[in-house]
C-alpha cells in the first residue's frame, strides 16, 4: 500500500466515522444536501485525488482513489464524491477547466434529455464521454441554468432528470466513448464493496450484543456461518473492486475492450451487483426485526446497495458484456487475456 493510500484511508475513515452517523443520515434524508460535509472533504482535497499535482490536485493513483470511494460506501456518505473524483480525472485528461464544487457523471444523454443523473440538483456540472465525427470527447455540461425534475433512488439519493442540455463544452480525449459509463460502474462496485463491509461490521457487533435463549447470537453456529459467508462475500468484493482500480493504473483504457481495464470493470460490477442480494439478506437476517425499522441504521446501507447494483448497469448487463468478451476472445485466447490483466505494464517496461 502506498503512503498516499494509507494516509487517505486513515483520514477518510476518521472523517466519515466522526460525521456520518445514524442521526446525521436521518437528518440529511430530510434536509437534502450535506453542504458542510462536502466542504470538509474539499479541505482534504479528496475530490482531486486523481488530478495531477501540476493542476492543483493530489497526484494520487486509482488505488488511492479506491480507498476514498470504498469509504463512501462503507459509511453511506451522502455526497457525489465518487462521481466528482471520476469527473475531475476525466477533465484532467482534456484541456477543459474543471469547475469548483461537486460534479457528477451523466449516465447517458438522449438528444437533449438526460435521466437519473446522480446528485444532479446539487452538482455544478456533469460529465460524460461521447463519440463524435472528429474523435472521442469529454462533454462538460454546466448545470447553472438547468432545471431538474427531482427523482431519487431507494436511499433517497438524488437521481434527477433534465432536458434542454445546452450550456456545454467539449474537450478531446483519448479514452473510449463509453469510459464515463465504465468508470461509473467501477465506482459503484467499490461503493458496494464498502457497503458489504458495513453490513458485516454491523452484523458482527449486533450478534455479539443481542442475546436469545440465554446466549449471544454469535454463539449459535448457524449465525457464525452466516457471518462467515457475509465476510467471504465482502472479501471477494474488496478483492475484485480493488483489482479493477489497480488495473486502471496498470493497464487503463486501450484499443480493445476485451483486453484492457474494461474487462476488469465488467467483472467487478457484475460480481458486486450479483452479491448485493446475498450480503443484504444475510445482514438483515442476522439483525432480525430491529434491522427492518427506520430507526435502526442498517437500511442506510442496504437501500444504497439495492439501488447501486442497478446503476451504471446491473448484473445482467455486465454479465452479458463479459460473455461477449469471453466469446469474442474464444477458448484459445481467453486465458491469456485473464492472466494479462494482473500485469503491471509500467513495471514490466523497467
Amino acid at each position: 500500500m502506498s503512503d498516499i493510500s494509507s494516509m487517505l484511508e486513515d483520514s477518510v475513515t476518521r472523517l466519515f466515522r466522526d460525521k456520518v452517523d445514524r442521526e446525521f443520515l436521518q437528518e440529511q434524508e430530510k434536509t437534502g444536501w450535506a453542504a458542510q460535509l462536502w466542504e470538509l472533504t474539499e479541505e482534504l482535497g479528496l475530490s482531486s485525488v486523481l488530478v495531477k499535482e501540476d493542476n492543483g490536485g493530489v497526484g494520487g493513483d486509482w488505488a488511492d482513489a479506491y480507498e476514498i470511494v470504498k469509504g463512501c460506501g462503507r459509511f453511506a456518505v451522502p455526497l457525489p464524491l465518487p462521481e466528482t473524483i471520476v469527473a475531475r480525472w476525466l477533465l484532467d485528461q482534456t484541456n477543459l477547466v474543471a469547475p469548483e464544487g461537486p460534479l457528477t457523471l451523466i449516465p447517458s444523454i438522449d438528444g437533449s434529455d438526460a435521466k437519473r443523473i446522480p446528485w444532479g440538483r446539487n452538482a455544478v456540472a456533469g460529465c460524460t464521454t461521447q463519440v463524435t465525427d472528429s474523435g472521442n470527447i469529454v462533454r462538460l455540461v454546466d448545470f447553472t441554468d438547468v432545471v431538474f425534475t427531482h427523482e431519487v433512488n431507494l436511499a433517497k439519493e438524488p437521481r434527477d432528470n433534465c432536458s434542454m442540455i445546452a450550456n456545454l463544452c467539449d474537450g478531446d480525449v483519448n479514452v473510449p466513448a463509453t469510459a464515463s459509463f465504465y468508470l461509473g460502474a467501477m465506482i459503484r462496485s467499490a461503493q458496494i464493496s464498502g457497503v458489504a463491509m458495513a453490513l458485516l461490521e454491523q452484523a458482527t457487533i449486533y450478534s455479539g450484543e443481542r442475546s436469545q435463549f440465554g446466549r449471544n447470537l454469535n454463539k449459535f453456529q448457524t449465525v457464525q456461518h452466516n457471518l462467515a459467508r457475509l465476510a467471504t462475500a465482502a472479501a471477494s468484493l474488496d478483492s475484485i473492486s480493488r483489482f479493477a482500480f489497480a488495473t486502471m493504473d496498470n493497464v487503463g483504457f486501450k484499443d480493445d475492450a476485451k483486453t484492457d481495464v474494461r474487462f476488469a470493470i465488467a467483472a467487478a460490477k457484475s460480481r458486486a451487483s450479483e452479491c448485493v442480494d446475498l450480503i443484504c439478506a444475510l445482514s438483515h437476517q442476522i439483525h432480525g426485526a430491529i434491522g427492518f425499522t427506520y430507526e435502526h441504521s442498517l437500511h442506510f446501507y442496504s437501500r444504497r446497495a439495492w439501488s447501486w447494483r442497478s446503476e451504471f448497469g446491473g448484473s445482467s448487463y455486465w454479465a452479458n458484456t463479459l460473455g461477449d468478451i469471453a466469446l469474442g476472445l474464444g477458448s484459445e485466447k481467453l486465458w491469456g487475456a485473464i492472466t494479462a490483466l494482473g500485469i503491471n505494464e509500467t513495471k514490466t517496461a523497467n
Partner: peptide
C-alpha cells in the same frame, strides 16, 4: 452469454 459472463466474473 450471461451465464458465461457470470462464470467468468
Amino acid at each position: 452469454k450471461r451465464e458465461i459472463g457470470s462464470i467468468l466474473a
